[in-house]
Simulated assay, not measured.
Amino acid sequence: MRSFIFVFLIALTFIESGAQLRYEDQIRIKEAKQISYLFGDLIWSGYNEPPFAILFVMDNYEYLIEHYYQPDDFARLEYDTIIHSTLHRRPAQMNKNFLATFPFAGLNTIVIGTPENTGLNSTEWIVTLLHERFHQYQYSSPKYFLETNELNLAKGDESGMWQLNYPFPYKDAKVIMAYETYTQALYEAVKSIGKENWEATKKEFFSARRAFKSALVPDDYKYISFQWYQEGIARYTEYAFLEKLENYEASEEVKKLPDFVPFDEYKESFFQKHIENVRKLKLEEVGRVTVYDVGFAEALLLRELNPNWDESYLKVKFDLEKLY
């Protein structure tokens, strides 16, 4: 009897009953996973090969989902029959506003807060999870991190924070002037796709892009190009999923969420918002935030000018200009 009690207590240290995720979080994650597996490989070959590892951060606890490894400070919970994954939990340590992907406990892991804490509705949150899933796809490319380091932009920073804090000349008057001309030309080129003025606006775009590049020293251009490549194409991937979802029927559980917006409706507002941001967001005011929508717009041009650009994306890294 004593041995039975001993084994039972030991088991409880590894498996806790109850304390699972909220139902609404379960069905959002389930929906994102289903969309990923249905459409991801149609957008990017091999998109679904990396583990879909998530660290879901709530106010009091954080949960590891579809993660191969159990760090010592996580307790194992019951198998989640909605998400179809074993869960591991610990008291919350990460920032509850996180929307990021980075190596954690041996895997490239999406670290994401709740919709309430990240300021997103259910539709936006699901699509953002697919954005972060794309970063797992990027990072799974052989030598991705090695080649990132070989850009020599870290200047001794081994934490990776240089990607956020690089001293780009956001407030340099010459750079701002060239940037505004470039982004206006980029906006006009995207808006003219399929129209009579396409050839003229395309030429103006490439001219303005070259001028912006000339306004930067080589390291600064490498940095902004890296950001367009990494974050801008992740933003584009959100839109690519929304295009695939035009005739997709969301699950009844997700459709019942009070803040769910049908994907086809969200697609239209998404495009308008992010293409307008190309010329609306000011480099000197928001800095690095501009890279998401500029990279998104460049991707729209890329697929018009080089329909097979996606096949070379992970081979020709960190400069979209080389893919045109």
Rank of each mutant, 00 (worst) to 15 (best):
M1Q: 07
F8V: 09
F8Q: 11
T13K: 06
A19P: 04
R22F: 15
R28K: 14
R28P: 14
K33T: 14
S36A: 14
F39E: 15
I43M: 07
G46I: 06
P50D: 11
A53N: 08
E62P: 06
E62Q: 15
Y69R: 01
Q70T: 12
F74C: 10
R76N: 14
R76G: 15
L77M: 07
Y79A: 02
Y79Q: 01
Y79H: 03
D80S: 05
D80N: 13
H84Q: 08
S85V: 05
S85Y: 05
Q93N: 12
N95F: 12
F98Q: 08
P103C: 07
F104A: 04
G106V: 00
G113S: 14
P115K: 06
N117Q: 14
N117C: 07
L120Q: 13
V127A: 00
H131Y: 15
E132H: 07
E147G: 03
E147C: 05
N149I: 00
M161H: 08
Y166K: 02
F168I: 11
F168T: 02
K171V: 13
D172A: 15
V175Q: 03
V175R: 02
A178G: 03
A178D: 13
Y182Q: 12
V190D: 13
S192V: 02
E204G: 12
F206H: 07
F212A: 12
S214P: 03
V217T: 06
Y221R: 05
G232R: 04
R235Q: 12
T237F: 15
Y248V: 02
E253P: 04
L257M: 00
P258F: 11
P258N: 05
D264W: 06
S269E: 09
F270Q: 04
Q272N: 15
Q272Y: 14
Q272H: 13
E276G: 05
K282H: 15
K282I: 12
K282N: 14
E284W: 12
E285S: 13
V286G: 13
A299F: 05
L302V: 01
N306D: 09
K317G: 02
D319S: 01
L323R: 10
